[in-house]
Amino acid sequence: MTDAGLTVFPFWLLMLMPLMTAERLLEVVVARRNTRWAMARGGVEFGRGHYPVMVVLHVAFLAGIVVEIAVTSRSFVPALTWTALAMVVLANLVRLWCVRALGPQWNTRVIIVPGLPLITHGPYRWLRHPNYVIVMTEGIALPLVYGAWTTALLFTVANAALLAVRLRAENSALRLATGQ
């Protein structure tokens, strides 16, 4: 399809954004349920101060993609779009694997339940923080599905700064949980 000489995005591809938003909202529901589960078992939250910043950053990320799509006239570049879309799908499959591996211990917050062993199966067999690799991948790939490279760049830089804080909080929590 073309519009004034530009190749435009297939309409169905625009449905990805509402799907990604719905996924994030579902994650919030699961995280709240898991927070109640953890707190009922004596869970302790770490790094509470950065959590509101993380929420704002992730909402701004999704909104930034939509705004960049609306205000720019980026062409549909099939090779970039399909590669980025494949990365988004793969990242989300691995995210589901992480959620499944952690079970009720999965959360968007850093909460440690004293006495529970570290999860060392699923993707945690190979990486200590696989979900953060997923977030970084998706932070680049999802905007690039639409050619929204400005959002990809801004989110990646802001997310790297946030992850530095979050990883310190999570690693401290894990050290305390394992007695190291």
Rank of each mutant, 00 (worst) to 15 (best):
A4F: 12
G5W: 10
L6W: 13
L6R: 14
T7A: 15
V8F: 00
P10A: 04
W12V: 11
L13Q: 07
L13I: 05
M15V: 04
L16N: 12
L16G: 10
M20I: 14
M20P: 05
T21K: 10
A22H: 13
E23S: 12
E23W: 15
R24N: 01
L25D: 11
L26M: 14
L26Q: 09
E27V: 06
V28L: 15
V29P: 03
V30M: 10
V30R: 14
A31L: 04
R36G: 01
M39W: 07
M39N: 03
A40F: 02
G42T: 10
G43Q: 09
V44P: 00
V44T: 09
G47N: 04
R48L: 07
R48D: 03
R48T: 11
R48N: 12
P52Q: 08
P52C: 04
V55C: 04
V56W: 12
V56A: 14
G64Y: 07
G64M: 07
G64W: 01
I65P: 13
V66A: 10
V66C: 12
V67R: 07
E68S: 05
A70V: 01
A70E: 11
V71R: 09
T72K: 07
T72R: 13
F76K: 09
V77S: 11
T81N: 00
W82V: 00
L85Y: 13
L85V: 05
A86F: 13
M87R: 14
M87P: 01
M87N: 03
A91D: 08
V94F: 09
V94T: 06
W97P: 06
C98S: 00
C98Y: 01
V99M: 08
R100A: 12
L102Q: 08
G103Q: 04
P104W: 05
W106P: 00
T108L: 15
T108K: 13
R109Q: 14
I112F: 09
V113L: 01
P114T: 07
P114G: 11
G115S: 01
P117Y: 11
P117N: 03
L118I: 10
T120I: 15
H121T: 15
H121V: 15
G122A: 00
P123K: 05
P123V: 04
R125Q: 09
L127P: 09
L127E: 14
R128Q: 15
R128M: 14
R128F: 04
H129G: 06
N131H: 08
N131T: 07
N131G: 02
V133L: 15
V135F: 01
T137E: 06
A141H: 03
P143W: 04
Y146T: 00
G147F: 11
W149I: 00
W149T: 05
T150H: 09
T151F: 04
T151D: 06
A152I: 03
A152T: 01
L153K: 02
V157T: 01
A158T: 02
N159H: 13
A161M: 13
A161G: 10
L162V: 14
L163H: 04
L163C: 05
A164R: 15
V165I: 15
L167R: 11
N171C: 07
S172Q: 13
L174E: 08
A177I: 10
T178D: 13
T178Y: 02
